[in-house]
């Protein structure tokens, strides 16, 4: 028995070229390239071009210089970026903890009507953002909204304010509407992760005296951490691409006084123009490129720094 011979034999076996794999991949590849990769490349390319003296020309990083250098562009951009960060932070500190709490409550075995609650809480996610935006505009309207009326009934009318119309509260109000709409997603993902924990592990914890809150902190939370990571990155990508809800609730100007302006709405106004502002494809593409870089950085951070440290548990 010479082991060397056997290894040589193995390496000499020629595998037939598996062309069919390529053939099967092709349709998806073509579609994906046409609708995702090409537009992305084209956008990135456009961010390096602009119209100079009536001529479409390569300007290098000129557009980026304008965006960050010109005081008016820069003010708009930093305002949108800051609002976007606030938007994201509100989701992280409100949506995800509440989602986890809802999932934890849903997974209580003795809870009755849990299927009903699950559906009810998930329902807004299925609604169109147009409907959600419109509903909340109606609810919160100080003139014919139902919120002041309802708050009056319980004697809390003094608490009411035209939240969507005030620059200092509009962003928070819109963020909370978005939280309301999307809370079902973290809830469902965490719920699935919680169901994945075997009963016997929980029972072992009961026997060890680890019950109630300490059971949640010491056993359940560490075991659902990977799901929380995934939710965070989904929230991040979703929030930095957000546009629709703000557009329906506050319009393209993201009022009042641009207090709800995020990168998505800034991009929209810049690229397509709005009212007196003329559309500027090059500057729009430049903003889009920055958004792409921000999201890329966030996702890379997650994939390479966070996810690697996280353990996935097999039960």
């Amino acid at each position: 028995m010479k082991p060397r011979e056997t290894t040589m034999d193995v390496s000499e076996i020629k595998r037939p070229r598996r062309w069919h794999i390529l053939v099967f991949l092709l349709p998806a590849l073509i579609v994906y390239t046409a609708v995702m990769i090409l537009p992305l490349i084209e956008t990135l390319r456009q961010s390096f071009y602009n119209t100079v003296d009536g001529q479409y020309a390569f300007v290098g990083l000129g557009n980026f210089q304008v965006l960050f250098g010109d005081p008016r562009w820069a003010a708009d951009f930093w305002n949108a970026l800051r609002n976007n960060c606030v938007f994201f932070l509100i989701h992280m500190v409100v949506q995800n903890p509440i989602g986890i709490a809802l999932a934890a409550m849903l997974s209580i075995p003795k809870l009755r009507f849990s299927a009903f609650y699950r559906t009810a809480i998930f329902l807004p996610t299925l609604l169109s953002f147009v409907i959600v935006g419109f509903i909340w505009k109606l609810i919160l309207s100080p003139i014919w909204g139902v919120a002041p009326f309802l708050m009056d009934i319980v004697g809390l009318k003094w608490l009411f304010a035209p939240w969507l119309g005030r620059p200092d509260s509009a962003l928070i109000a819109v963020s909370l509407i978005s939280v309301w709409q999307y809370i079902g997603i973290p809830m469902m993902l965490i719920y699935a992760a919680l169901l994945n924990i075997p009963d016997e592990v929980i029972e072992a914890a009961e026997l060890d005296g680890v019950t109630g809150w300490s059971q949640f902190w010491k056993i359940k939370l560490p075991l659902i951490l990977p799901a929380i990571g995934i939710i965070s990155i989904l929230t991040f990508v979703g929030n930095f691409n957000a546009f629709d809800l703000i557009y329906t609730v506050q319009g393209a100007l993201a009022g009042p006084d641009k207090s709800t302006d995020i990168l998505g709405t800034l991009l929209y106004r810049t690229f397509f123009g709005f009212q007196l502002q003329l559309g500027d494809r090059s500057m729009g593409a430049t903003i889009a490129a920055i958004m792409f870089l921000i999201i890329l950085a966030g996702v890379s951070l997650y994939l390479f720094a966070i996810q690697r440290r996280m353990r996935r548990y097999q039960f």
Binding site: V201, A204, E206, P222
Partner: peptide, 20 residues
């Protein structure tokens, strides 16, 4: 009496160790 206060310990078929 709560399980943990009964002075018992249980070993499960599926081990039921804390994976983390």
């Amino acid at each position: 009496v709560a399980p943990a206060k009964r002075g018992i310990a249980m070993v499960f078929q599926s081990y039921a160790l804390y994976p983390h």
